[in-house]
Amino acid sequence: MSDPTPTPPGRVEDVGMRLGTLGQLLRLFGRGKRPWLLPLVLLLSVLGLVLAGLQAVQYVAPFIYPLL
């Protein structure tokens, strides 16, 4: 039996997956019935990425907030 413990994806891969998710999100709104929502979704996506980035550096995040 091989080792069942997870091998977490690397940083690059992690970011890649997030961008992939955002791509799908934009596609959902772009091609769907609600293209008018795209700008808002874009804005929220950027915020989401920033938050995800801050989560990745959570130990130093409190020092970064004042800069934002």
Partner: peptide, 12 residues
Amino acid sequence: LRFSRLIGDTMA
């Protein structure tokens, strides 16, 4: 981390 999370959530 709790502190960091608290600040993060408040900012967000």
